[in-house]
């Protein structure tokens, strides 16, 4: 259900940024490892939320961002192999590491049909619609 909320928030954001009638082709999103978001679930939620709308064929491109830590004492920045507790200590000493990445949840881009390709795209779209029941 978390993923459905995220998909709905993403669609709201796109409606505001691109406009509800925009001819979207794809959308790029970056997800940090700490967000607890499952890529497959988000893809499923995206399809479910857009089913039957003008954006139902829009592709969702997901990019993952690793958990990244920074040690304020020695300046080292590193990416623990997994978001688990036993990999967070910096070898330089007891200073706690700070979060430098992995909590992202960003819309990176949206791709719209270019004006030249737009006619083709619309043709394909209307013929697909025409083939429907």
């Amino acid at each position: 259900m978390h993923e459905l909320s995220i998909a709905e928030a993403l669609i709201d954001l796109l409606r505001r940024r691109a406009g509800p009638e925009a001819k979207l082709v794809s959308v790029g999103v970056r997800i940090g490892a700490l967000q607890g978001i499952d890529g497959q679930c988000l893809q499923f939620a995206w399809q479910a939320a857009l089913s039957g709308t003008n954006w139902q064929d829009v592709r969702l491109d997901l990019e993952s961002a690793p958990w990244t830590l920074h040690c304020p004492a020695c300046g080292r920045t590193w990416q623990p192999a997994a978001a688990i507790a036993d990999q967070t200590a910096c070898p330089c000493g007891p200073t706690p590491a700070t979060l430098a990445g992995g909590d992202e949840l960003d819309l990176l881009f949206y791709e719209v049909q270019t004006p030249a390709a737009s006619g083709v795209g619309e043709g394909v779209y209307s013929s697909t619609k025409g083939d429907g029941p």
């Binding site: 928030a9 505001r16 819309l107 949206y110």
Partner: peptide
């Protein structure tokens, strides 16, 4: 045509 955005998905919530 790709339109770069880089905006938090939960911007409305925030």
């Amino acid at each position: 045509m790709k339109v770069p955005v880089v905006e938090n998905v939960l911007k409305l919530n925030d």
